[in-house]
Design a protein around this nucleic acid. Structure first.
Lengths: 235, 235
DNA sequence: CGCGAGATTGAACCCTGTCAATCCGAGTGG
DNA sequence: CCACTCGGATTGACAGGGTTCAATCTCGCG
Protein backbone atom coordinates (compact mmCIF):
# COMPACT_ATOMS: atom_id res chain seq x y z
CA UNK A 1 0.00 0.00 0.00
CA UNK A 2 3.00 2.29 0.16
CA UNK A 3 2.59 3.47 -3.42
CA UNK A 4 2.53 6.93 -4.91
CA UNK A 5 -0.66 7.81 -3.04
CA UNK A 6 -1.07 10.09 -0.08
CA UNK A 7 0.33 7.30 2.01
CA UNK A 8 3.38 7.27 -0.23
CA UNK A 9 6.56 8.87 1.08
CA UNK A 10 5.25 9.04 4.63
CA UNK A 11 7.29 8.12 7.67
CA UNK A 12 6.51 4.88 9.46
CA UNK A 13 4.93 6.82 12.30
CA UNK A 14 2.70 8.69 9.93
CA UNK A 15 1.72 5.54 8.12
CA UNK A 16 0.89 3.91 11.40
CA UNK A 17 -1.40 6.69 12.51
CA UNK A 18 -3.17 6.62 9.17
CA UNK A 19 -3.63 2.89 9.33
CA UNK A 20 -5.05 3.27 12.80
CA UNK A 21 -7.98 5.35 11.58
CA UNK A 22 -8.33 4.09 8.01
CA UNK A 23 -10.59 1.32 6.86
CA UNK A 24 -10.67 -0.48 3.55
CA UNK A 25 -13.85 -0.13 1.55
CA UNK A 26 -15.11 -1.31 -1.80
CA UNK A 27 -17.48 0.62 -3.98
CA UNK A 28 -19.58 -0.98 -6.67
CA UNK A 29 -19.91 0.73 -10.00
CA UNK A 30 -22.54 3.45 -9.69
CA UNK A 31 -22.41 3.58 -5.94
CA UNK A 32 -22.09 7.00 -4.29
CA UNK A 33 -19.63 7.65 -1.45
CA UNK A 34 -20.48 11.28 -0.72
CA UNK A 35 -23.61 13.29 -1.50
CA UNK A 36 -23.43 17.00 -2.20
CA UNK A 37 -25.17 18.96 0.54
CA UNK A 38 -24.90 16.21 3.12
CA UNK A 39 -22.49 16.26 6.01
CA UNK A 40 -18.96 15.45 4.80
CA UNK A 41 -18.21 12.42 6.93
CA UNK A 42 -15.18 10.92 5.25
CA UNK A 43 -12.03 11.49 3.32
CA UNK A 44 -10.32 8.72 1.45
CA UNK A 45 -7.51 7.55 -0.68
CA UNK A 46 -8.43 5.92 -3.98
CA UNK A 47 -6.67 2.58 -4.42
CA UNK A 48 -8.23 1.34 -7.64
CA UNK A 49 -11.00 2.27 -10.03
CA UNK A 50 -12.26 5.64 -11.25
CA UNK A 51 -14.57 8.04 -9.41
CA UNK A 52 -16.45 11.07 -10.62
CA UNK A 53 -16.91 14.34 -8.77
CA UNK A 54 -20.11 16.04 -9.84
CA UNK A 55 -22.32 19.05 -9.26
CA UNK A 56 -25.86 19.63 -10.44
CA UNK A 57 -28.24 22.52 -10.99
CA UNK A 58 -31.58 22.73 -9.23
CA UNK A 59 -33.37 21.45 -12.32
CA UNK A 60 -31.15 18.44 -12.79
CA UNK A 61 -28.50 19.48 -15.26
CA UNK A 62 -25.30 17.75 -14.19
CA UNK A 63 -21.66 18.68 -14.61
CA UNK A 64 -18.78 16.39 -13.76
CA UNK A 65 -16.21 18.68 -12.15
CA UNK A 66 -13.45 16.16 -11.70
CA UNK A 67 -12.34 12.60 -12.28
CA UNK A 68 -10.38 10.69 -9.66
CA UNK A 69 -7.89 8.00 -10.52
CA UNK A 70 -5.96 5.52 -8.36
CA UNK A 71 -3.76 7.25 -5.76
CA UNK A 72 -5.91 10.38 -5.85
CA UNK A 73 -7.20 11.95 -2.69
CA UNK A 74 -10.96 11.96 -2.12
CA UNK A 75 -12.99 14.32 -0.01
CA UNK A 76 -12.81 17.80 1.43
CA UNK A 77 -11.19 18.32 4.82
CA UNK A 78 -12.34 21.31 6.87
CA UNK A 79 -15.77 21.54 5.26
CA UNK A 80 -18.86 20.63 7.25
CA UNK A 81 -20.95 19.81 4.21
CA UNK A 82 -19.83 18.31 0.94
CA UNK A 83 -20.03 20.59 -2.09
CA UNK A 84 -19.89 17.80 -4.62
CA UNK A 85 -21.11 14.28 -5.07
CA UNK A 86 -18.57 11.45 -5.33
CA UNK A 87 -19.66 8.39 -7.29
CA UNK A 88 -17.85 5.31 -8.58
CA UNK A 89 -17.66 5.00 -12.36
CA UNK A 90 -16.11 1.56 -12.11
CA UNK A 91 -15.87 -0.83 -9.20
CA UNK A 92 -13.40 0.80 -6.86
CA UNK A 93 -11.39 0.26 -3.72
CA UNK A 94 -10.65 2.96 -1.19
CA UNK A 95 -8.87 3.55 2.04
CA UNK A 96 -11.45 5.55 3.98
CA UNK A 97 -10.83 7.85 6.94
CA UNK A 98 -13.47 9.50 9.11
CA UNK A 99 -13.03 13.20 8.42
CA UNK A 100 -12.40 14.48 11.94
CA UNK A 101 -9.70 12.00 12.89
CA UNK A 102 -8.16 12.53 9.49
CA UNK A 103 -8.02 16.26 10.07
CA UNK A 104 -6.41 15.63 13.44
CA UNK A 105 -3.86 13.37 11.79
CA UNK A 106 -3.12 16.11 9.28
CA UNK A 107 -2.40 18.57 12.04
CA UNK A 108 -0.11 16.15 13.80
CA UNK A 109 1.84 15.15 10.73
CA UNK A 110 3.22 18.13 8.92
CA UNK A 111 4.58 15.99 6.14
CA UNK A 112 1.16 14.62 5.30
CA UNK A 113 -0.34 18.07 5.34
CA UNK A 114 2.37 19.27 2.98
CA UNK A 115 1.66 16.41 0.63
CA UNK A 116 -2.04 17.23 0.61
CA UNK A 117 -1.29 20.89 -0.06
CA UNK A 118 0.71 19.99 -3.14
CA UNK A 119 -1.99 17.71 -4.40
CA UNK A 120 -4.64 20.31 -3.83
CA UNK A 121 -2.62 22.90 -5.71
CA UNK A 122 -2.27 20.46 -8.59
CA UNK A 123 -5.99 19.70 -8.53
CA UNK A 124 -6.66 23.44 -8.68
CA UNK A 125 -4.50 23.79 -11.78
CA UNK A 126 -6.34 20.87 -13.33
CA UNK A 127 -9.74 22.36 -12.53
CA UNK A 128 -8.73 25.65 -14.08
CA UNK A 129 -7.47 23.92 -17.17
CA UNK A 130 -10.89 22.34 -17.45
CA UNK A 131 -12.48 25.76 -17.21
CA UNK A 132 -10.68 26.83 -20.38
CA UNK A 133 -11.97 23.71 -22.05
CA UNK A 134 -15.55 24.20 -20.91
CA UNK A 135 -15.66 27.87 -21.73
CA UNK A 136 -13.71 28.19 -24.92
CA UNK A 137 -13.40 24.91 -26.79
CA UNK A 138 -15.67 23.60 -29.52
CA UNK A 139 -17.34 20.20 -29.27
CA UNK A 140 -14.70 18.59 -31.47
CA UNK A 141 -11.86 20.05 -29.44
CA UNK A 142 -13.50 18.92 -26.23
CA UNK A 143 -13.96 15.33 -27.38
CA UNK A 144 -10.46 15.11 -28.86
CA UNK A 145 -8.77 16.41 -25.72
CA UNK A 146 -10.95 14.19 -23.55
CA UNK A 147 -9.81 11.11 -25.44
CA UNK A 148 -6.16 12.11 -25.20
CA UNK A 149 -6.54 12.82 -21.48
CA UNK A 150 -8.23 9.53 -20.87
CA UNK A 151 -5.62 7.66 -22.84
CA UNK A 152 -2.90 9.21 -20.71
CA UNK A 153 -4.62 8.33 -17.43
CA UNK A 154 -5.50 4.78 -18.35
CA UNK A 155 -1.90 4.37 -19.40
CA UNK A 156 -1.00 1.02 -17.90
CA UNK A 157 -4.50 -0.40 -18.12
CA UNK A 158 -4.94 -3.75 -19.77
CA UNK A 159 -7.78 -3.09 -22.18
CA UNK A 160 -10.79 -4.57 -20.44
CA UNK A 161 -9.72 -4.06 -16.84
CA UNK A 162 -10.39 -0.40 -16.37
CA UNK A 163 -8.14 2.04 -14.64
CA UNK A 164 -5.79 0.04 -12.46
CA UNK A 165 -2.37 1.63 -12.36
CA UNK A 166 0.69 -0.58 -12.35
CA UNK A 167 2.74 0.61 -9.37
CA UNK A 168 6.20 1.85 -10.19
CA UNK A 169 5.44 2.94 -13.70
CA UNK A 170 4.88 6.63 -13.14
CA UNK A 171 3.74 8.03 -16.48
CA UNK A 172 4.02 5.39 -19.17
CA UNK A 173 3.61 6.36 -22.78
CA UNK A 174 -0.12 6.16 -23.28
CA UNK A 175 -1.09 3.16 -25.39
CA UNK A 176 -3.11 3.29 -28.53
CA UNK A 177 -6.06 1.40 -27.06
CA UNK A 178 -8.06 1.62 -23.87
CA UNK A 179 -11.52 1.10 -22.42
CA UNK A 180 -13.54 4.15 -21.41
CA UNK A 181 -14.79 3.95 -17.82
CA UNK A 182 -17.59 6.38 -18.72
CA UNK A 183 -20.81 6.09 -20.66
CA UNK A 184 -21.50 8.61 -23.41
CA UNK A 185 -23.82 10.42 -21.03
CA UNK A 186 -21.04 10.76 -18.49
CA UNK A 187 -18.58 11.95 -21.09
CA UNK A 188 -21.15 14.56 -22.04
CA UNK A 189 -21.35 15.61 -18.40
CA UNK A 190 -17.58 15.99 -18.27
CA UNK A 191 -17.44 18.09 -21.41
CA UNK A 192 -20.53 20.20 -20.94
CA UNK A 193 -22.20 18.73 -24.02
CA UNK A 194 -25.08 16.37 -24.80
CA UNK A 195 -24.91 12.66 -25.48
CA UNK A 196 -25.76 13.21 -29.12
CA UNK A 197 -23.04 15.75 -29.73
CA UNK A 198 -20.44 13.51 -28.10
CA UNK A 199 -21.58 10.60 -30.22
CA UNK A 200 -21.48 12.65 -33.41
CA UNK A 201 -18.01 13.98 -32.72
CA UNK A 202 -16.75 10.50 -31.96
CA UNK A 203 -18.02 9.10 -35.22
CA UNK A 204 -16.61 12.14 -37.01
CA UNK A 205 -13.18 11.43 -35.55
CA UNK A 206 -13.62 7.80 -36.57
CA UNK A 207 -14.65 8.68 -40.12
CA UNK A 208 -11.62 10.92 -40.36
CA UNK A 209 -9.41 7.99 -39.41
CA UNK A 210 -8.02 9.52 -36.24
CA UNK A 211 -9.51 6.95 -33.89
CA UNK A 212 -11.31 3.63 -34.03
CA UNK A 213 -14.27 2.46 -31.95
CA UNK A 214 -14.16 -1.33 -32.21
CA UNK A 215 -16.79 -2.09 -29.59
CA UNK A 216 -18.92 -0.48 -26.91
CA UNK A 217 -16.56 1.71 -24.95
CA UNK A 218 -13.17 0.74 -26.29
CA UNK A 219 -11.16 3.35 -28.10
CA UNK A 220 -8.16 3.02 -30.35
CA UNK A 221 -6.09 6.06 -31.15
CA UNK A 222 -4.83 5.66 -34.70
CA UNK A 223 -3.29 9.06 -35.24
CA UNK A 224 -2.25 10.79 -32.07
CA UNK A 225 -0.67 13.89 -33.66
CA UNK A 226 -3.80 14.37 -35.71
CA UNK A 227 -5.96 14.01 -32.64
CA UNK A 228 -3.79 16.50 -30.78
CA UNK A 229 -4.29 18.91 -33.63
CA UNK A 230 -8.06 18.59 -33.29
CA UNK A 231 -7.72 19.18 -29.55
CA UNK A 232 -6.12 22.54 -30.34
CA UNK A 233 -5.86 25.06 -27.59
CA UNK A 234 -3.76 24.29 -24.58
CA UNK A 235 -5.37 21.16 -23.29
CA UNK B 1 -1.72 44.85 7.56
CA UNK B 2 -2.84 42.15 9.98
CA UNK B 3 -6.20 41.70 8.28
CA UNK B 4 -8.04 38.61 7.18
CA UNK B 5 -5.35 37.84 4.60
CA UNK B 6 -2.74 35.12 4.72
CA UNK B 7 -0.87 37.33 7.15
CA UNK B 8 -3.94 37.38 9.37
CA UNK B 9 -3.95 35.16 12.43
CA UNK B 10 -0.25 34.49 12.23
CA UNK B 11 2.05 34.60 15.19
CA UNK B 12 4.42 37.54 15.57
CA UNK B 13 7.33 35.30 14.63
CA UNK B 14 5.58 34.19 11.49
CA UNK B 15 4.63 37.71 10.59
CA UNK B 16 8.19 38.81 11.09
CA UNK B 17 9.60 36.17 8.79
CA UNK B 18 7.07 37.09 6.14
CA UNK B 19 7.87 40.74 6.43
CA UNK B 20 11.53 39.89 6.07
CA UNK B 21 11.05 38.46 2.59
CA UNK B 22 8.00 40.42 1.43
CA UNK B 23 8.04 43.61 -0.56
CA UNK B 24 5.23 46.00 -1.29
CA UNK B 25 4.34 46.43 -4.93
CA UNK B 26 1.78 48.38 -6.90
CA UNK B 27 0.24 47.23 -10.12
CA UNK B 28 -1.39 49.58 -12.58
CA UNK B 29 -4.61 48.58 -14.19
CA UNK B 30 -3.86 46.21 -17.07
CA UNK B 31 -0.38 45.36 -15.85
CA UNK B 32 0.59 41.70 -15.70
CA UNK B 33 2.34 40.21 -12.68
CA UNK B 34 2.81 36.65 -13.91
CA UNK B 35 2.81 35.25 -17.46
CA UNK B 36 1.59 31.74 -18.16
CA UNK B 37 4.45 29.55 -19.32
CA UNK B 38 7.15 31.71 -17.80
CA UNK B 39 9.06 30.81 -14.68
CA UNK B 40 6.90 31.36 -11.60
CA UNK B 41 9.08 33.80 -9.69
CA UNK B 42 6.72 35.18 -7.09
CA UNK B 43 3.81 34.57 -4.81
CA UNK B 44 1.88 37.40 -3.27
CA UNK B 45 -0.87 38.56 -1.05
CA UNK B 46 -3.42 40.89 -2.61
CA UNK B 47 -3.95 44.00 -0.50
CA UNK B 48 -6.28 46.01 -2.68
CA UNK B 49 -7.75 45.91 -6.17
CA UNK B 50 -8.93 43.05 -8.33
CA UNK B 51 -6.80 40.66 -10.37
CA UNK B 52 -7.73 38.18 -13.06
CA UNK B 53 -6.29 34.71 -13.53
CA UNK B 54 -6.49 33.69 -17.15
CA UNK B 55 -5.65 30.95 -19.62
CA UNK B 56 -5.70 31.10 -23.39
CA UNK B 57 -5.85 28.72 -26.33
CA UNK B 58 -3.17 28.66 -29.00
CA UNK B 59 -5.33 30.73 -31.32
CA UNK B 60 -6.04 33.44 -28.82
CA UNK B 61 -9.35 32.52 -27.24
CA UNK B 62 -9.13 33.55 -23.60
CA UNK B 63 -10.83 32.22 -20.52
CA UNK B 64 -10.64 33.91 -17.13
CA UNK B 65 -10.29 31.05 -14.67
CA UNK B 66 -10.42 33.05 -11.50
CA UNK B 67 -10.83 36.47 -9.98
CA UNK B 68 -8.75 37.58 -7.02
CA UNK B 69 -10.00 40.05 -4.44
CA UNK B 70 -8.25 41.78 -1.53
CA UNK B 71 -6.79 39.31 0.99
CA UNK B 72 -6.61 36.57 -1.63
CA UNK B 73 -3.44 34.62 -2.19
CA UNK B 74 -1.69 35.00 -5.53
CA UNK B 75 0.63 32.57 -7.24
CA UNK B 76 1.44 28.89 -7.28
CA UNK B 77 4.02 27.55 -4.83
CA UNK B 78 5.89 24.41 -5.83
CA UNK B 79 5.48 24.94 -9.58
CA UNK B 80 8.46 25.85 -11.71
CA UNK B 81 6.40 27.48 -14.42
CA UNK B 82 3.19 29.41 -14.10
CA UNK B 83 0.11 27.79 -15.60
CA UNK B 84 -1.93 30.96 -15.71
CA UNK B 85 -1.47 34.64 -16.35
CA UNK B 86 -2.14 37.09 -13.52
CA UNK B 87 -3.21 40.59 -14.57
CA UNK B 88 -4.57 43.58 -12.71
CA UNK B 89 -8.13 44.57 -13.60
CA UNK B 90 -7.92 47.67 -11.44
CA UNK B 91 -4.96 49.43 -9.90
CA UNK B 92 -3.81 47.06 -7.20
CA UNK B 93 -1.44 46.74 -4.27
CA UNK B 94 0.30 43.54 -3.33
CA UNK B 95 2.66 42.12 -0.79
CA UNK B 96 5.03 40.15 -3.00
CA UNK B 97 7.30 37.27 -1.94
CA UNK B 98 9.97 35.61 -4.06
CA UNK B 99 8.66 32.09 -4.53
CA UNK B 100 11.58 30.09 -3.13
CA UNK B 101 11.93 31.98 0.13
CA UNK B 102 8.17 31.90 0.48
CA UNK B 103 8.16 28.13 0.10
CA UNK B 104 10.87 27.92 2.74
CA UNK B 105 8.80 30.09 5.06
CA UNK B 106 5.83 27.81 4.48
CA UNK B 107 7.85 24.80 5.54
CA UNK B 108 9.07 26.54 8.66
CA UNK B 109 5.70 27.82 9.75
CA UNK B 110 3.15 25.08 9.95
CA UNK B 111 0.41 27.49 10.79
CA UNK B 112 0.91 29.43 7.59
CA UNK B 113 0.98 26.26 5.56
CA UNK B 114 -2.26 25.16 7.16
CA UNK B 115 -3.85 28.48 6.31
CA UNK B 116 -2.75 28.17 2.69
CA UNK B 117 -4.13 24.64 2.52
CA UNK B 118 -7.54 25.83 3.63
CA UNK B 119 -7.53 28.65 1.15
CA UNK B 120 -6.49 26.36 -1.66
CA UNK B 121 -9.26 23.92 -0.80
CA UNK B 122 -11.73 26.79 -0.87
CA UNK B 123 -10.35 28.00 -4.21
CA UNK B 124 -10.78 24.49 -5.56
CA UNK B 125 -14.44 24.44 -4.53
CA UNK B 126 -14.87 27.80 -6.18
CA UNK B 127 -13.23 26.66 -9.40
CA UNK B 128 -15.45 23.60 -9.52
CA UNK B 129 -18.51 25.71 -8.94
CA UNK B 130 -17.46 27.74 -11.94
CA UNK B 131 -17.18 24.59 -13.98
CA UNK B 132 -20.87 23.89 -13.43
CA UNK B 133 -21.60 27.41 -14.56
CA UNK B 134 -19.46 27.22 -17.67
CA UNK B 135 -20.69 23.81 -18.70
CA UNK B 136 -24.35 23.85 -17.85
CA UNK B 137 -25.75 27.35 -17.48
CA UNK B 138 -27.43 29.44 -20.15
CA UNK B 139 -26.19 32.92 -21.03
CA UNK B 140 -28.86 34.56 -18.91
CA UNK B 141 -28.06 32.39 -15.91
CA UNK B 142 -24.37 33.10 -16.32
CA UNK B 143 -24.81 36.86 -16.43
CA UNK B 144 -27.28 36.91 -13.54
CA UNK B 145 -25.07 34.84 -11.27
CA UNK B 146 -22.04 36.87 -12.27
CA UNK B 147 -23.74 40.08 -11.19
CA UNK B 148 -24.81 38.57 -7.88
CA UNK B 149 -21.31 37.23 -7.27
CA UNK B 150 -19.75 40.54 -8.07
CA UNK B 151 -22.18 42.40 -5.86
CA UNK B 152 -21.25 40.14 -2.97
CA UNK B 153 -17.52 40.59 -3.45
CA UNK B 154 -17.61 44.34 -3.92
CA UNK B 155 -19.67 44.52 -0.77
CA UNK B 156 -18.10 47.44 1.05
CA UNK B 157 -17.00 49.23 -2.09
CA UNK B 158 -17.90 52.86 -2.47
CA UNK B 159 -19.25 53.05 -6.00
CA UNK B 160 -16.39 54.49 -8.00
CA UNK B 161 -13.48 53.17 -5.96
CA UNK B 162 -13.34 49.60 -7.09
CA UNK B 163 -12.85 46.63 -4.87
CA UNK B 164 -11.31 47.89 -1.65
CA UNK B 165 -12.53 45.94 1.34
CA UNK B 166 -13.18 47.78 4.58
CA UNK B 167 -11.21 45.85 7.21
CA UNK B 168 -13.28 44.39 9.98
CA UNK B 169 -16.46 44.06 8.03
CA UNK B 170 -16.22 40.44 7.03
CA UNK B 171 -19.17 39.80 4.73
CA UNK B 172 -21.44 42.84 4.65
CA UNK B 173 -24.83 42.55 3.05
CA UNK B 174 -24.10 43.28 -0.58
CA UNK B 175 -25.38 46.71 -1.54
CA UNK B 176 -27.70 47.42 -4.37
CA UNK B 177 -25.11 49.36 -6.37
CA UNK B 178 -21.52 48.78 -7.36
CA UNK B 179 -19.00 49.45 -10.09
CA UNK B 180 -17.82 46.57 -12.25
CA UNK B 181 -14.04 46.25 -12.35
CA UNK B 182 -14.30 44.44 -15.69
CA UNK B 183 -15.03 45.51 -19.23
CA UNK B 184 -17.74 43.67 -21.15
CA UNK B 185 -15.03 41.75 -22.95
CA UNK B 186 -13.57 40.57 -19.66
CA UNK B 187 -16.97 39.59 -18.33
CA UNK B 188 -17.40 37.58 -21.50
CA UNK B 189 -14.07 35.88 -20.80
CA UNK B 190 -15.21 34.99 -17.30
CA UNK B 191 -18.49 33.51 -18.47
CA UNK B 192 -17.34 31.78 -21.62
CA UNK B 193 -19.49 34.00 -23.84
CA UNK B 194 -18.98 36.81 -26.35
CA UNK B 195 -19.16 40.54 -25.68
CA UNK B 196 -22.37 40.81 -27.63
CA UNK B 197 -24.18 38.10 -25.73
CA UNK B 198 -23.17 39.63 -22.40
CA UNK B 199 -24.38 43.01 -23.55
CA UNK B 200 -27.69 41.62 -24.77
CA UNK B 201 -28.33 39.72 -21.56
CA UNK B 202 -27.54 42.80 -19.50
CA UNK B 203 -30.01 44.95 -21.39
CA UNK B 204 -32.55 42.15 -21.15
CA UNK B 205 -32.18 42.10 -17.36
CA UNK B 206 -32.50 45.89 -17.40
CA UNK B 207 -35.61 45.85 -19.57
CA UNK B 208 -37.12 43.31 -17.19
CA UNK B 209 -36.53 45.70 -14.30
CA UNK B 210 -34.20 43.42 -12.36
CA UNK B 211 -31.17 45.68 -12.61
CA UNK B 212 -30.26 49.17 -13.74
CA UNK B 213 -27.22 50.29 -15.71
CA UNK B 214 -26.96 54.02 -14.98
CA UNK B 215 -23.56 54.61 -16.55
CA UNK B 216 -20.57 52.82 -18.05
CA UNK B 217 -19.82 50.01 -15.66
CA UNK B 218 -22.02 50.77 -12.71
CA UNK B 219 -24.73 48.32 -11.81
CA UNK B 220 -27.75 48.67 -9.58
CA UNK B 221 -29.58 45.58 -8.44
CA UNK B 222 -33.26 46.50 -8.23
CA UNK B 223 -34.72 43.08 -7.55
CA UNK B 224 -32.32 40.66 -5.97
CA UNK B 225 -34.73 37.73 -5.51
CA UNK B 226 -35.75 38.06 -9.14
CA UNK B 227 -32.13 38.11 -10.19
CA UNK B 228 -31.40 35.05 -8.08
CA UNK B 229 -34.24 33.31 -9.82
CA UNK B 230 -32.68 34.05 -13.20
CA UNK B 231 -29.36 32.72 -11.91
CA UNK B 232 -31.08 29.38 -11.26
CA UNK B 233 -28.89 26.38 -10.70
CA UNK B 234 -26.67 26.29 -7.69
CA UNK B 235 -24.55 29.40 -8.14
C1' DC C 1 -14.49 69.16 -32.33
C1' DG C 2 -12.95 64.73 -33.46
C1' DC C 3 -10.89 60.68 -32.13
C1' DG C 4 -10.87 56.01 -30.07
C1' DA C 5 -12.09 52.49 -26.87
C1' DG C 6 -15.82 50.35 -25.23
C1' DA C 7 -20.82 49.29 -25.45
C1' DT C 8 -25.11 48.53 -27.75
C1' DT C 9 -28.01 46.92 -31.38
C1' DG C 10 -29.26 44.47 -35.67
C1' DA C 11 -29.31 40.66 -39.05
C1' DA C 12 -27.73 36.29 -40.75
C1' DC C 13 -25.60 32.04 -39.87
C1' DC C 14 -24.36 27.79 -37.70
C1' DC C 15 -23.09 24.91 -33.99
C1' DT C 16 -25.21 22.50 -30.67
C1' DG C 17 -29.38 21.12 -28.19
C1' DT C 18 -33.83 18.96 -28.67
C1' DC C 19 -36.92 15.51 -30.10
C1' DA C 20 -37.53 11.20 -32.11
C1' DA C 21 -36.53 6.94 -34.52
C1' DT C 22 -33.41 3.18 -34.92
C1' DC C 23 -29.73 0.21 -33.80
C1' DC C 24 -26.83 -2.71 -31.06
C1' DG C 25 -25.43 -6.07 -27.51
C1' DA C 26 -26.30 -8.38 -23.27
C1' DG C 27 -29.18 -10.63 -20.34
C1' DT C 28 -33.73 -13.20 -19.55
C1' DG C 29 -37.25 -16.14 -20.03
C1' DG C 30 -40.36 -18.92 -22.88
C1' DC D 1 -32.91 -21.20 -29.98
C1' DC D 2 -35.32 -17.31 -30.45
C1' DA D 3 -38.20 -13.51 -28.98
C1' DC D 4 -38.34 -9.96 -25.84
C1' DT D 5 -36.61 -6.38 -23.21
C1' DC D 6 -33.71 -2.80 -21.69
C1' DG D 7 -29.85 0.39 -21.33
C1' DG D 8 -26.74 2.55 -24.09
C1' DA D 9 -25.27 4.34 -28.65
C1' DT D 10 -26.04 6.10 -33.17
C1' DT D 11 -28.26 8.78 -36.62
C1' DG D 12 -31.58 12.11 -38.64
C1' DA D 13 -34.45 16.33 -38.85
C1' DC D 14 -35.32 20.55 -36.91
C1' DA D 15 -35.27 24.65 -33.94
C1' DG D 16 -32.95 27.85 -31.24
C1' DG D 17 -29.43 30.05 -28.47
C1' DG D 18 -25.20 32.11 -29.23
C1' DT D 19 -21.68 33.54 -32.37
C1' DT D 20 -20.24 36.26 -36.17
C1' DC D 21 -20.08 40.26 -38.87
C1' DA D 22 -21.17 44.90 -39.16
C1' DA D 23 -23.19 49.39 -38.16
C1' DT D 24 -24.15 52.74 -34.68
C1' DC D 25 -23.87 54.88 -30.24
C1' DT D 26 -21.73 56.77 -25.95
C1' DC D 27 -18.40 58.98 -23.43
C1' DG D 28 -13.98 60.61 -21.95
C1' DC D 29 -10.12 63.07 -23.53
C1' DG D 30 -6.68 65.52 -26.29
Amino acid sequence: MRDQSLCGSLSDAELASLNAIGRHRSLARGQTLIWAGEEALVCANLLSGVLKLSAATADGREQIVGLLYPADFVGRPYAEDAEHTVTALTDAELCVFPRRPFEAALENHVHMERLLLRRTLAALDDARGRMLMLGRKTAEEKVASFLLDMGAHLGAAHPGGAGRCAPGKAAPASPAAFELPLTRAQIADVLGLTIETVSRQMTKLRRDGLIDLPAGRSVLIRNRPGLQERAEAGG
